[in-house]
Amino acid sequence: MTTASPPRQFVIRSPREAIALRLPVRGVAVAAILLLGIVVVSCISLATGSYGVALNEVWETLRGVTISRAIDNVVWEFRFPRTICAALVGAMMALSGGVLQNATRNSLADPSLVGISQGAALAVVTLTVMFPELNSGFRPWIAFFGSVLVAMAIRALSHTRQGASTIRFILMGIGLSAFISSLTSILLTYGEIDRAMAALAWLAGSINAASWGDVWTLLGWSAVLFPALLLLSRSMSAMRFGEAAATGLGAPVATVRNLQLAIAVGLAAIATSVVGPLGFVGLIAPHAARRLAPAGMGLHLVLTALLGALLVGAADLLGRAAFAPIQIPAGILTSLIGVPVFVLLLMRSRATVSH
Score class of each variant (00 low, 15 high):
L113K: 05
L113H: 05
V114K: 04
G115K: 02
I116L: 14
S117G: 13
Q118P: 06
G119L: 01
G119P: 00
A120E: 07
A121F: 06
A121Q: 11
L122C: 08
A123D: 00
A123T: 00
V124F: 04
V124E: 00
T126M: 12
T126W: 08
L127P: 02
L127M: 15
T128K: 03
T128N: 07
T128R: 09
V129C: 01
E133H: 14
L134P: 06
L134W: 14
N135I: 03
N135R: 11
N135F: 09
S136Q: 09
F138P: 04
F138I: 12
F138Y: 15
R139P: 02
W141N: 02
A143Y: 05
F144L: 12
F145E: 07
G146Q: 10
S147G: 15
L149P: 06
L149F: 13
L149C: 14
L149E: 10
V150N: 04
V150G: 02
A151M: 01
A151V: 02
R155V: 05
A156M: 14
A156D: 11
A156V: 10
S158M: 04
H159Q: 15
Q162T: 12
G163I: 06
A164L: 06
T166Q: 06
T166G: 01
T166N: 07
F169T: 00
L171Y: 05
M172E: 01
G173N: 04
G173L: 00
I174S: 05
G175I: 11
G175A: 15
S177L: 03
A178V: 12
F179M: 15
I180D: 05
S181G: 11
S181I: 05
S182K: 08
S182P: 03
L183V: 04
L183H: 08
S185D: 10
I186K: 09
I186G: 09
I186R: 11
L188Y: 08
L188S: 02
T189R: 09
T189W: 12
Y190K: 11
Y190H: 15
